[in-house]
Design a protein around this nucleic acid. Structure first.
Lengths: 146, 146
DNA sequence: GACATATAGTTGTTTATGCAACTAAACAAA
DNA sequence: TTTGTTTAGTTGCATAAACAACTATATGTC
């Protein structure tokens, strides 16, 4: 029962996610133009800390769909950039609470504005209804595979 | 004029492409289960060679949305695996024609079947109409940013 | 309390990405 | 033919991903 509606080239771009790759690159470009020297991967971690500061590395794994070594190294690099700090938890000494520095907090406004700009560029000419359906489909895809 | 229809968390997953990440990981898993020892990135190059053998590295860059160094190294690794070969072009000595080996050609059927299986898993419960709109939106996003 | 197991995080290895700087061949203009 | 420019591909570097193997702490069970 292999009767999905994808022709060959479409199958390719759906699997490889060329649209989201393009969005990521555009966002990265905007960061660079604004002299914000972080990667989109680092942004994706900061994003969750801006929503809720003081997450553990494990919580960041779950939030960003990465494994533990990936988060270890992203946090390493964010620490080098002095944007976050590892605070050992007092209740459970296994846990590092990742907290934003002042410098990390200061990036939020600019970065989120650039993310919104990027999305508006990406969705130029796409109707509200189309966006709603696309979001729904991508969520279903994610749920089907998780 | 920042009035797109994305709430915070949705913005995140649209930009980071968690759906396509999940599809890629699932396909990789299927390859592994079938003892096909290639990465999805390598698959993405083979995919275009299966459609048309003997592409130049530059053509592979355009087809896979990668820069030249990325293709140089993917071809390096595919050559190590003996799935492709670099043939210097006789008309233009700058160009490497990348051609499939017998072994590389043999992978096509299995890999494409696994790609289709993966997509069917991903799209379980999604209607034809929804898929069409999602494809359209992703194509528009890509066109807007390229 | 002691032992097994689960959880949180780190380190090592291979593969891949993007950017900058580079070499070599082709082409175009004088 | 010489000089400058474009095109194709490679190399070096920093960042990141996935997997396996590891350490340290916490927890559950006898």
């Amino acid at each position: 029962m292999s009767n999905n509606q994808f022709k060959k080239g479409e199958l390719y771009s759906f699997i490889t996610g060329k649209a989201s790759t393009a969005i990521g690159r555009r966002l990265q470009k905007h960061f660079k133009q604004a002299s914000i020297e972080i990667t989109i991967e680092q942004w994706s971690v900061l994003y969750h800390l801006w929503k809720e500061d003081g997450l553990s590395q494990q919580q960041l794994c779950d939030a960003t769909f990465r494994d533990k070594p990936s988060i270890t190294r992203l946090v390493d690099n964010l620490e080098k950039l002095k944007l976050v700090k590892r605070n050992a938890s007092k209740e459970d000494r296994r846990i590092n609470m990742i907290v934003l520095t002042d410098e990390g907090r200061e990036l939020e406004e600019k970065c989120m504005a650039l993310a919104n700009t990027t999305l508006n560029e990406a969705l130029h000419g796409v109707t509200h209804g189309q966006i709603e359906i696309a979001k729904e489909v991508l969520q279903m895809v994610y749920d089907n595979l998780k």
